[in-house]
Simulated assay, not measured.
Amino acid sequence: MSSAETATAAASDARTERRAKRIAKHLTSFAQQHGGSADAVVEYVGTAATRIVVVGADGAWGDQVAPTYAVGRRAVAIAGLTLHDDFEGELGLKVKTGPYEWKRMAGIQLGG
């Protein structure tokens, strides 16, 4: 690898780390507001984004978008969240939904 390629790779790694740290602040704040810990799943949204679904200890949930899968996984690691491979089983059972979510889901099913 040439020195120019090495410099480009180092700049890319630094950019990834900065983005991950910025997102991790939001994830850490969410966890602190919802019981002190949280679980997360990193999912591909498409070629230009990744979604981090976060479930707090109290069952509250939210999401954060990251520019890449690597940034999403790194942000979860920096925030100290428990990373899951998928959103099934025990993690799904932790989620508490309210009237808003039920109304939205019903509206989608009914074509609203």
Rank of each mutant, 00 (worst) to 15 (best):
V71N: 05
A60E: 10
T16Y: 08
Q64M: 07
E43V: 03
K21A: 15
T28K: 14
K21W: 01
Q32Y: 02
I78H: 11
R18A: 15
R22I: 05
L81A: 11
A70D: 15
A38Y: 01
A79N: 08
G80S: 08
T82Y: 00
K25D: 10
T28S: 15
A79Q: 03
E88H: 13
L83S: 12
P67Y: 03
A11R: 15
G56Y: 00
G72W: 02
I52E: 02
R18N: 11
A10I: 05
T82I: 08
A40D: 07
A14G: 08
K25A: 12
A40T: 01
L81D: 03
Q33V: 00
H34P: 06
G89S: 09
Q64I: 04
G72M: 05
V55I: 12
T28Q: 13
D39G: 14
G59I: 01
T82C: 05
V76K: 00
R22M: 09
T82M: 06
H34F: 03
D85A: 08
A49M: 04
V65D: 06
G35Y: 03
A24G: 02
T82N: 10
D58M: 06
Q32R: 14
V55W: 02
W61V: 00
V41C: 05
A77M: 12
A31M: 04
K25V: 13
G59S: 06
S37P: 10
R22Y: 09
P67Q: 01
F30S: 05
L27D: 04
G62M: 03
A10H: 05
D39W: 13
T50F: 13
A60Y: 06
G80F: 03
I52V: 14
V71W: 06
T68R: 11
K25C: 03
A49F: 06
V55H: 06
A77H: 11
V65L: 12
D13H: 10
V65Y: 13
L83Q: 11
R51V: 06
Q64H: 10
R15G: 11
A60C: 07
V55F: 05
H26L: 05
H84K: 08
R18T: 07
T16I: 15
E88R: 15
S29I: 00
G36K: 12
D63H: 07
E17M: 10
V71Q: 10
A10Y: 04
A14H: 12
K21G: 11
L83F: 01
